Amino acid sequence: MSTESASRTTGRRRRVLFAAAAVGVIIAVVAALIAAGVIWPNRVAAAGYETRGVDVSVYQGDIDWTVLGSEDIDFAIIKSTEGSGSQDSQFAANWAGARDTDLVVGAYHFMSFESAGETQAENVINTVPAEPGTLPVTVDLEYYGDFHDNPPTRSHVKSILDPLLADLEEHYGMPPIIYATQKAYDRYLLDAYPDNPIWIRSIAKEPTLPDDRDWTFWQYSDRDRLPGYDGEEEFIDMNVFDGTVDDLRALTR
Score class of each variant (00 low, 15 high):
P197M: 02
D195Q: 09
A180Q: 07
I203T: 15
Y172K: 03
K205Q: 06
P197I: 09
F217R: 09
W199L: 01
T216C: 06
Y179I: 03
M238T: 11
D212A: 13
Y188L: 07
L190K: 15
H171T: 08
D224V: 01
G228Y: 11
W199D: 00
M238S: 14
L168W: 06
N196R: 06
Y229C: 09
Y229K: 11
H171R: 09
D237N: 15
E232C: 02
I203L: 01
L190G: 04
D214H: 12
Y172W: 07
Q219L: 00
D214L: 13
I236F: 10
T181D: 08
R225P: 01
E233Y: 11
A180T: 08
E206D: 07
P207C: 05
H171M: 05
S221V: 13
L209S: 03
E170F: 14
D186Y: 04
A204Q: 11
D191N: 12
Y220R: 05
I177Q: 07
F235C: 02
G228P: 10
E206C: 03
D230S: 13
S221I: 07
G228V: 06
Y220N: 04
E170Q: 15
Y229Q: 10
P194E: 08
Y188Q: 05
R187F: 13
M238C: 13
L189F: 15
A180P: 08
N196G: 10
Y179H: 11
D191F: 04
G173N: 05
D212L: 03
L190A: 10
I236M: 07
I203N: 04
P175D: 04
G173H: 03
I198K: 11
W215V: 02
R225V: 12
R201L: 04
D167L: 10
E232T: 14
I178A: 08
D230Q: 10
F217Y: 08
E206N: 02
Y185M: 12
K205P: 00
D222F: 01
Y179D: 04
P207M: 06
Y188W: 13
D230M: 06
R187H: 15
I198M: 15
S202V: 07
W218E: 07
K205I: 04
W215F: 14
P227C: 05
R225K: 14
S221Y: 12
E233H: 14
K205F: 01
E170I: 12
W218F: 13
K183R: 07
L189D: 09
G231V: 12
Y220S: 01
E234V: 07
P175N: 09
M174R: 14
R225A: 05
L226E: 05
D237M: 03
Y193M: 02
D167N: 14
I200E: 00
E233L: 10
I200D: 02
W215M: 01
I198H: 04
W218K: 11
P194F: 08
Y229S: 09
Q182Y: 02
Y185N: 12
D211A: 04
E170R: 12
D222K: 02
A180K: 06
D211F: 08
K205E: 03
G231L: 12
D224I: 00
E170Y: 14
Y172R: 01
D212M: 01
F217T: 03
